[in-house]
Each structure stands twice: as structure tokens, then as C-alpha cells.
Design a protein around this nucleic acid. Sequence first.
DNA 1: TTGTATGCGTTATCAC
DNA 2: GTGATAACGCATACAA
Lengths: 313, 313
Amino acid sequence: MATIVDVAKLAGVSTATVSRVFNGQVVSDERVRAVRSAAHELQYVPNRTARSLRRRHSEMIALIFPDVSNPYFTEIARGVEDVARAAGYSVVLCNTDGDHAQESEYLRVAAAANMAGVIIAAADDESPAPPEGSGPAVVAIDRALRGANVDEIVMDNYEAGFLAARAIEDRGPLVVLTGSEAVGTARDRARGAVDAGAVDVIHADFGVEGGRRHALELLDRAERPGGIVAGNNLLGVGVLQAMASRNLTTRDIAVSVIGALPFTTLHPQAVPIVHLPSRRMGELAAERMLRRISGDAGGLERVVLRGELRDAV
Amino acid sequence: MATIVDVAKLAGVSTATVSRVFNGQVVSDERVRAVRSAAHELQYVPNRTARSLRRRHSEMIALIFPDVSNPYFTEIARGVEDVARAAGYSVVLCNTDGDHAQESEYLRVAAAANMAGVIIAAADDESPAPPEGSGPAVVAIDRALRGANVDEIVMDNYEAGFLAARAIEDRGPLVVLTGSEAVGTARDRARGAVDAGAVDVIHADFGVEGGRRHALELLDRAERPGGIVAGNNLLGVGVLQAMASRNLTTRDIAVSVIGALPFTTLHPQAVPIVHLPSRRMGELAAERMLRRISGDAGGLERVVLRGELRDAV
DNA sequence: TTGTATGCGTTATCAC
DNA sequence: GTGATAACGCATACAA
């Protein structure tokens, strides 16, 4: 790999001039041409590691998520990417699997790699707060980051829960199936559903498997509920899988879902969905992050996005 | 952020000693304790950028995928992560959206960031080959990387297509819906399906939207096919969505899918699936990558994994 | 076993 | 405008 020194030699200029050319600073046309030509010939690519060491800042943004295989999060990632890329940043995804150790690890990696920023969806209330001070700019997304003074872009989860329950309240006694009690969004959604009339709350986790298992248990009860509010997309899938395996449809037991039904092949209108603007959330987080990086972000902000009731598909 | 110099000063040793402590080299117990204590007090974390600049190698592996919102790829990512993390590497996901420019960009980023390796699923036949020579180790996954001399971990796509078509061959004239003609896997799967009796091939792309659109067109034909072979998971979803919107079930028109039906809520047995061991593929790619990095990988390898016919869910 | 000194590839500071 | 040159934070060859 060619270095700046090689280019400088070939172009007959100093390394400083080469650097200036690649950073858009004032250099005479003549030398610009010489440098570009030499760089092209040597296939020179500025070494980001060195640049970043010197500038103490790299054009990389890390997205730290508890579950990158959840379409909700990949959708957020899309939003972030669109904005970040347009601003010349590369974004990389980091999967923590809901594990605090991995969250810490990626936080460390991001700092030690001089990344410009970190957008993190915390696993739960006990997730580690990033160290204050220098390091990368941090924005919390989807979930508040307890004990950290950072910008937040989140959903109105209480309202989402409320809307989801209200959408099927006429179907009789409702139970809301939500994520772990340690996750704020899970609690808020359940609270909303309860305030809209749900009579029972089950804390599973935000995964398909848990949804299916708890739904089966519900379906096998002596008195089946009239409807189930699924606290997120994966729980929705789990519930519907359980019902399918018992030959039940949403005509038998109502189901509403907070978020979306990923890749659903169900009939439209079968399932009321409280759609959450995840992509938009990603965009907003990225914009916030960019302003933080540029330094003119001002005080801490907290943006709350609202969901919207729709039919499936 | 504290640096190695700060730690050395506080511990009363040289920076070399600090470095040795953090790299597991022989240092007297006494000084090890002093260094650890000082490092702890200062919350010192070795700067990866500097280390990587010096060592010309960082403990990061990039996963370059055409579509990180496709569960097939996130499943692969899981496999890679498991293996890579166990070996002390961090893995980051890069989304190219099937765009060659972005593929090049991430390839550049990986090289310029001194990443240890790159595992890439190429967008199509025209995807840029990574520059030979120094740079990160490269392994192609899922799809061959044309014009590049790299290890390959791929599926037996021809066989998968064959199995998928054969699973529903009794249902009358079959059409296979597959990805772009520019994608090798798409061609191979179609070829397999044709050899098993499919009478028509439609090249869409590997996305839900294309699947739905082309399926609708099929369903609106004067003579509907008896069965549709979906070339990947997303096409499968699209086909089933189209059928649902026309009030058709798999009793009316057979559907078989190559890969999986992500998050399906369908009845088991409704859809034959040729399951592809994507997670295993990720693991193998990561293992191969680690051996490449360590230098004892030997000659170029090409591993071909085989799919297996199953029922949905 | 330990310390000194040098270099990894850039960018920024300073003279010119 | 341009060129020397000193950092950036770390790892290592060499000496001791």
C-alpha cells in the first residue's frame, strides 16, 4: 500500500502538499494535478488509521443494538445510514444480543477506534452508561440510557400500548404480552395497554420464542382471553404462530401488535398494528449525532415519536 | 482519555513496560501490579487506532452484505459473530444495498482502517474485487466473488433449486421466481428448478416487493401456474403476500421456498422449504478467515454447503 | 527483566 | 502557497 510519502516523492512535492490536496485546502492547480496523477498511479488511499490517530476522530459511527436480526432495528439502521452516509460517514452495526458485557465491549471499541459517534439502543435499565467526557458522541435510540446524559430519540411507548389495546378492546378480556420488566419500553407499552383496558400483563422477552410459549400457555387456559396485545413485532409473530398451531385465527382471538408484523403474509386487516416510525427515528438520531459531532448541538434533547394505528401489511 | 504515558508515569515505569503488561509479555509481578493499579485508576484503555497503526492490523472484521435487513444475512452474521468473538475479534456489519459503489467504499474503509478481515457477500457478478496484496484477508460468502482469488463458502444453489421444485412438482406447471440474472445464486437456483421440471423462469430481484409484483402478474394470467418456486426467503414472502391479497392459499397454488420463511405465521406443512444452513455458513467463513489471518490457511478453499427439504416453521 | 529510542502514516504548526 | 517537522498513542528492536 502506497503512503503519502510515496505520492509526495513521485509528484515532487512535500507530504504536506499531498495532505492538503486530499483535504481540500488551497494548493496551486499545477501541483494539484501532479499529486492527483501520482496518487492515481500508485492507487494511493489515505490511511484512515493514521489520519484518525492524528485527528483524534474518524468518520465512523457505530450502531449498538441488542438484536440486529430484529427487523425493527434494521429499519432504524436504514434511517441512520441514509443520513450518515450522505454526510460522509460510514456506519457499522454492532450486535450485543442484549448482553451488558458486549455493550461495554462495543462502547470500548468505538472509543478506542476513535469513532465519531455511537447510537445505542440499550439492552435494558442496567445497561452500562458510556463514560462521560472525550470519547465518541452518544445518542440513545428507542430506549433511554439510564444514568447517561445523552440525547434521546424514542417512541411514545405508553401511547402505542394504549392504541394497540384500544384497537381490540371490544373483543373481550385483553392480556398484554410484553418484554422483560427490566426494559422501559416494555413496561411503558404494558402500562398503556392496561390503561386502555387490558386486564393482565405478561412479561416475556422481546422475542418470537417467548411470544409463542406464553401465547400457548394463554391458549391452553380454561378461560381464554378475548384478545392479546403483542408488545413488539417478534412477540406478535410468536403469538400468531402459537395460534396457527392451535388452528386458531384472529376471528377466534383478537391480536394487535405494536411495531409491525415483519414479512407477514397474513390478510390485510387481520391484525391491527400500531406502526412505529422506526426508520424516521434512525434518521433523527443520525441528524442529532451529526450536530453533536459538529459541536453545535446545544443542550440535551429528547425527541418522542408517536405511533399510528394501521392495518397489517 | 488517559494514554500509555500517563499510566507509565503514575506507575513509575517506562511506557514499554506498560505496553508489555497489556500484551501479556514477561514483566515482574511487582510492576504488573503497579501498572494494573495505575491503569485502573486512570481508566486507561489502550487506543486501538494507535495500536493498529503500529501493528498494521486491528482486531476488527467487516461483514459486507447487500441487505442487512434480510434475515438470511443476519443469520449468517450470527454465525460469524459467534466464532469471531470467541477469538477476540469484533465484527461490524456493513450494508451495501446491492450498490457497487458502496461495496467499494466499505472495502476501502476496511483496508484503510486496518481491519483484519472482510467477509463479503457480493451484490452480483459485477461486484468489485478487493485489491490483491496486503490489505485485510478476504473471504467470499454465499456468493462467489468474480475475478478475486479468495476463499469461498457457498451453498449448493443448483441442488436447492432442484429440491424446491421437486417438492411441488406434482402440482402442475411450475414457474420459478428468482433473483436478478446478474446474480449467480439466482441463476443456479433457477437452473436447478428447471432441471426438476419448472417450465418458466422469472428473474425479479431478491426482494419482497419484486416477489409480490411478479406473483400478482402470474396470478392474473389466463392460465395460472400450478406452483411457484420462490428463489429466496423474501421472494417467498412476496409470493405469499400476493396470494393472500387474491384470497388464494397454498391449496390453490403450491409454493415452495429456498432458504426460509422469516417470521412466518403460516401453518406448518403449508410450504415446503429448502432450508439453507446460513448460520453454519457464517461460522465456517469466520473460521476460514481466522486461519487466513493467522497465516496458516494454505491454498484457496471452496466450501459448498447443502440445503435440506423441510416443512415451514 | 527493563528502559531508550524509533517509526507506523497522517495532519497541524510554524516558518518561509 | 509551500515545505520542514513535530506530534498523535502505541509497539518493538536494541541496549543494558
